[in-house]
Amino acid sequence: MRALIISVIIISLIACNRTQIKENPEKDTIDSEQLLDQNKDSSQYLSEENLELNQEKTKSIKVERLITIKDDKKKLQELVIAKKFYKEEDFYVLDYKYPYLNEQIDTNNTRFNDFLTENYLDIEATENEILEDKVIFCDSLGIGRCMDKRVMDYKIYAVKSNLLSVLLYKENYYSGMKHATYMFECLNFDLNNHKFIYYNDFFIENSEKELLTTINKIISDGINSGELFYECWELSEGDFKVYKNNFVVNDDVVEFYFDDCIICPSYTGTYSIEIPITEIMHLIRKYNNKPLIG
């Protein structure tokens, strides 16, 4: 009887060992699959992290190029007075820098100042817009504190003695967004006639198609160069119609400005396209009695 019990125990042990031997390869397979999944997740995370770091880097370069552009502020300091407005509340910050034409030099400069005030310095409307967004987005997301920031600054250029070109660039920080977004407004003001100059005043009729082709060639060349234009795209005809008045004249170039995500994503590319005047001189109204460009 004792021999029988011992035999049963030995058989049971052998069977258990066989089961373990059989189950171990499956466990190894599962562990290997989990390890591969973990490595894949880790690799994907590192890849996304590297992509985000690269985007932050190219974004910084793009913004720095905008901010460090040289203009004619010093040369125009008698005519153009630099103004500032700053307001900080619980949910937002407004930080504006803008040009103000000296009305003591010419009282007609009020036309420029009034236009700028009415169209870009409506503080109450901006505050209401921000607070409405807070109700819609912040409250719905259950966020206790959402801080937005609106920043406006400018570049200004003098062309000969009669044309003033102003670039207003607006930097918007929205709650929950990774990158600030940039928007642009360009103003061209005739100091002699005290009126604003728009596309149709500066360029000849039916010039849009050729100018769009010229702009897209510059963009295409930038994309093919493999530099900071990666992931950019050509300007559509519809967008050109919207932004065709968004240009400044600076030295020997006409420069068109576009908001984020019109020709490039926010983190790469460029905000503007420079066109040498010599390339498009035949499209500029330069045969007037008082030409804008000599």
Rank of each mutant, 00 (worst) to 15 (best):
A3T: 05
I9G: 14
I11Q: 14
L13N: 09
N17G: 15
E23H: 11
N24W: 02
T29I: 11
L36A: 14
D37S: 13
Q38E: 15
Q38S: 14
S43P: 00
Y45L: 08
S47Q: 13
S60G: 12
K74Q: 10
E78R: 02
I81F: 09
K87V: 08
D95T: 08
L101W: 05
D106K: 01
L121G: 07
L121R: 11
N128T: 01
E129H: 04
I130W: 05
I143Q: 13
C146E: 08
V151R: 07
Y154T: 07
L164N: 06
G176M: 08
K178G: 01
H179M: 06
A180I: 03
T181G: 12
E185S: 13
I197E: 04
F202I: 03
N206F: 05
E208C: 02
E210C: 01
T214C: 08
I219V: 10
D221T: 03
D221M: 02
D221F: 02
F229T: 02
W233F: 09
Y243S: 01
Y243D: 06
V248F: 01
V249D: 01
V249P: 01
D251W: 00
D259R: 06
C261D: 15
C264Q: 06
Y267A: 01
E274I: 02
T278C: 08
R285N: 14
N288H: 09
L292G: 11
